[in-house]
Computed example of a mutant assay.
Amino acid sequence: MTRAADVRSVLVRVPATSANLGPGFDTLGLAVSLYDELVVTTTTGSGVEVHVEGVGAGEVPTDEGNLVVQAIAAAYASVGQPLPGLRLEARNVIPHGRGLGSSAAAIVSGVVAAKGLLEGVVEFSSADLLRVATEMEGHPDNVAPALFGGLTIAWMTSSGPAHKRLLVHRGVSPVVFVPESTLSTKLARSLQPASVPHEDATFNVSRSALLVAALIQSPELLLAATEDRLHQSYRASAMPETDALISLLRDAGLAAVVSGAGPSLLVLGSDPAQRLFAADLVAEHSLSDWRAVMLAVDLRGATVKPHPVENQDPLGI
């Protein structure tokens, strides 16, 4: 029997996510093929050692305040296990503060790492992982696709968060445009009103239902299906260039939306050629630098596997 005190090491890989997808506010999320990787190793001592390469290096906390560490601690606490000493080696690719689920990826990295480190001691179900991650994130729309991949519908019940994972039509071709600027989710949410007109709520219910059908069966409906009246227009003042580019792209027939809380924008092409058309339009009309990232829909979600403890280059894979 494996003991919690044994020195163990795991490799975790977690995808970026784009939530809302236009009308599916706080409900729909899509996992995409952009990944943070992390090796977590328990130590015989106490305390935490964190090393970060790539995005966030020199910026994110490298002690117990690190979000991944906090998520590992929350997962251990949820099953009554003492937290061991930890060494983290992270290689981050997902942009921070740009609407691609970087905080959700960090939280999911932590809970999935805990699952791997405690294998044989305590078993985590999918519901357990989603519950711990949602408690930390505050809502499940990003953590669900990061955990399970694909398109997820997430909702809250009296007993906690729940989700349904759906396979996306193979014709759906995402491209994300990432600006240099950032926007905090807290600020974006503060711009929304406490209530909306009944007709706007009805509008979004219809478009959300249509969007699920478009993503899993009928990509030709994506333009109509991504219309929104609940959040994007209220947040436009905080990201005017994002708003202008979305209008430009939609006028050209492309299903463009704010990615998560922004300021990145997501285009859901109905075929790969639409991504190239979108990239040309953004390059021609943008007023600042936007990086076009051609992506696929991630089908696996977060993964964790054992990693050799003696490896001196933890991410040398």
Rank of each mutant, 00 (worst) to 15 (best):
A4C: 02
V10Y: 07
V14D: 04
V14Y: 00
V14C: 10
S18F: 09
F25K: 00
F25T: 01
D26N: 07
L30F: 15
S33V: 00
Y35H: 00
D36L: 15
L38Q: 13
V39G: 03
V40F: 06
S46P: 11
S46V: 12
V50Q: 10
A57F: 11
G58H: 07
V60N: 05
V60W: 09
V69Y: 09
A75H: 06
Y76L: 04
G80E: 14
Q81Y: 06
Q81W: 07
G85T: 02
L86K: 05
R87W: 02
N92G: 10
I94H: 06
L100H: 10
L100S: 12
S102C: 07
A104L: 04
A105W: 06
A105N: 02
A106V: 10
V111Y: 09
V121Y: 05
V122S: 07
E123Y: 12
S126F: 06
L129Y: 00
L130P: 14
V132H: 06
A133Y: 12
E137R: 12
D141W: 10
V143M: 12
V143I: 07
A144M: 04
A146N: 03
T152K: 04
M156S: 04
G160S: 06
K164Y: 15
V172E: 10
S173H: 01
P174L: 10
F177G: 15
F177R: 12
F177A: 15
S181E: 08
L183C: 03
K186C: 15
A188I: 05
P193V: 04
E199H: 13
E199F: 15
A209P: 01
A214K: 04
L215S: 10
I216N: 00
S218Q: 05
L223G: 05
L223E: 01
T226L: 13
T226A: 10
E227L: 06
D228M: 07
R229L: 11
S237E: 14
M239V: 13
M239A: 15
E241Y: 11
D243V: 08
L249Q: 06
D251L: 02
G253K: 07
A255H: 01
V257W: 05
A261W: 01
A261S: 12
S264M: 06
G269L: 12
A273Y: 07
Q274I: 04
L276F: 14
F277A: 15
A278V: 02
L281N: 11
A283V: 04
S286G: 10
D289Y: 11
W290H: 05
V293T: 01
V293S: 03
M294P: 06
A296Q: 14
A296I: 05
V297W: 03
L299P: 05
L299A: 08
G301D: 14
G301N: 13
P306I: 13
H307N: 14
P308T: 09
V309M: 11
Q312W: 08
P314D: 05
